[in-house]
Design a protein around this nucleic acid. Sequence first.
DNA 1: TGTATTTTATTTGTCGACAAAAAATCGACA
DNA 2: TGTCGATTTTTTGTCGACAAATAAAATACA
Lengths: 234, 234
Amino acid sequence: MTNTDASFPPERKRGSGVKVVYELLRDEILDLVLPPGSPIDELQLAERFKMSRTPIREALVRLAGEGLIDTLPNRSTMVANIDFLNMHTFFDALVLMYRVTTKLAAQYHRPEDIAIIRAHQARFAAAAEAQDALAMIATNAALHSAIAEAGRNPYFTGLFNRLLDEGRRILRLYYQSYGDRLPQQFVDEHEDIIAAIAARDTEAADRLAKAHAEQIVKQIQTFFSRNERIDIAL
Amino acid sequence: MTNTDASFPPERKRGSGVKVVYELLRDEILDLVLPPGSPIDELQLAERFKMSRTPIREALVRLAGEGLIDTLPNRSTMVANIDFLNMHTFFDALVLMYRVTTKLAAQYHRPEDIAIIRAHQARFAAAAEAQDALAMIATNAALHSAIAEAGRNPYFTGLFNRLLDEGRRILRLYYQSYGDRLPQQFVDEHEDIIAAIAARDTEAADRLAKAHAEQIVKQIQTFFSRNERIDIAL
DNA sequence: TGTATTTTATTTGTCGACAAAAAATCGACA
DNA sequence: TGTCGATTTTTTGTCGACAAATAAAATACA
């Protein structure tokens, strides 16, 4: 019998509380379970996670540090809004990081990195095959994150992962339109990029990553310009 | 008489405590008053700032989020070390951000930005004239930060400012060798960069920023290779 | 004397409570 | 009925205290 008795508190390990709250809240924000602008109530979270406000607070401070929530002093903390007006700054940064991390991966990767990258690519291909848009988004981010890791520059991987997270929120907004067109093309482009990395061809890696990133950005921008009226309403 | 009575506590404004601790600690870390590896004791800080551990803790969480301190669970938090072995990743990121932010400044700056940038450049020139190495480091960082702001991409300015902070720590290590050679050249290069930005010549801005950044990096690397034996000791 | 084990001390993580600040509600007055 | 000001309520920021985890010290044993 493994602790079915509820009279004892859940026996959370000391120090694990913050991590649990942080990660769950982070996922809920990025998956839009908590949409932008949602109010965050410490007391409510404390009840929900059955712990005091102190660890909740620490998790919120961390999330604020990553820009995922905004805190007004003394009052109201809420899920950060997506800045549609300055979306182009996001795309600029995303394209550059796609390029830089891919290029560095071609330069600095180790043999074992390629295996990891190929495993992610296989998962992405499976998601594309199954026409599962949400899985495509997730596996695509994981793949590019793995490529960035192979480049071994913590400054770039840090920014890139942050951008991919932010991208998760944006992509959720139009994930319907993501699955129903040319997923096979993305799979092929990934294959080319991986081949360039494995061959340590930095020039090709950069060129292919640039084309790949710009195509994705273009697709998103096209979607948003089609829904311009909705954007303005936000 | 403005509160010379010490019987009342210092009357810190509610919510300001964290900010004070965060900023002071941050400065002390970046200025190497707290050298890498220094142990951080919450209780000691609480005494020093005359407040409870709670706001101290929040400041530390924030600093940890920026990678300025490392926390081992349940035990010992200390000032983050400078990773000399992977310094090249820092330089790669720094050069790229120099280029990107300068280029974007040329593209997106507004008239008022130029005035701000020129003011910073004047301060840098004064520091160079006075052969004040520490002031040169500070004003140089402020100048490039202002240029980045004119580019108006929060993702890039965020990373760039973090890199400039990290650079503050590295530059302190060799600031003696910074002042005693060609400061006038840096002043001139800055002038050229600013002129390119003002003329909205993105190509020239990128080229000049690249040369400028690479020259600085080269100088630092030369210094560190001369002091290789010291590096290994660390 | 050196090593393993118990004991003590130190430091962190969490808690519940209280005070300050802002928002929401209520009430006086025109 | 509408507006301004006072009052109440809600939520945050800070505090002191306690418990868990680790390190340091002390003790037992070979």
